[in-house]
């Protein structure tokens, strides 16, 4: 027999999180390295903390992919241009940092045990956190990137454009 559980109010129970990234950007080569990454997540009462951590770390890796690597380009007739894993880059073990993770446990009033949804909860915030960190690093050069993934070519092109337009303080 399989038994399920459904909360009385089942419009979703959301967990909340804050992500902080420290990055190093090489403006000449365009490489971005994540030096430190901290996540604090409030998933309500944690039923199995090990599985919750796994979901958040896994989500982080996907979010890093969105921020720095993964792109599905199309040409102007709709032709997909990245159809292999040699073109569509997934982060590997060297692209994902050993992130630090902490939890708050604010119980949900709407569920038994006070649990909240946590599935791959780490995936949403990284593009914003990383892009903000990159832009903070490049601020003295007068550069702000508004497109993900933040590729070496996009970084260098933006740095050169800022230099040419004289926006750079350096």
């Amino acid at each position: 027999m399989t038994q399920g559980y459904k909360p009385v109010r089942d419009s979703g129970t959301f967990s909340y999180a804050a992500h902080a990234a420290v990055v190093a950007v090489d403006p000449e080569v365009g490489e971005v390295e994540i030096l430190d990454y901290v996540i604090v997540e409030d998933g309500g009462v944690l039923v199995n903390p090990m599985v919750v951590d796994g979901q958040i770390y896994g989500g982080l890796a996907q979010g890093i992919g969105t921020a720095l690597y993964e792109e599905m380009p199309f040409d102007n007739s709709g032709q997909p241009l990245a159809t292999t894993l040699a073109d569509y880059l997934l982060p590997g073990a060297t692209e994902v940092p050993a992130a630090r993770l902490d939890h708050m446990e604010t119980p949900s009033p709407y569920t038994q045990f006070g649990v909240k949804g946590i599935g791959e909860g780490g995936a949403i915030a990284p593009p914003a956190a990383i892009a903000n960190a990159v832009n903070d690093a490049l601020r003295p050069l007068g550069v702000e990137l508004m497109q993900s993934p933040i590729t070496p070519h996009r970084v260098v092109a933006a740095v050169l454009a800022a230099r040419t337009s004289g926006r750079s303080a350096a």
Binding site: G54, A61, Q62, G92, A93, A98
Partner: peptide, 23 residues
Amino acid sequence: DERRIRVGLSGNLCRCTGYVGIV
């Protein structure tokens, strides 16, 4: 060390774990 382990595993992609537990 951790860095060399990560380099050594870089040819094996994982979409779930973020490599934390593997490393």
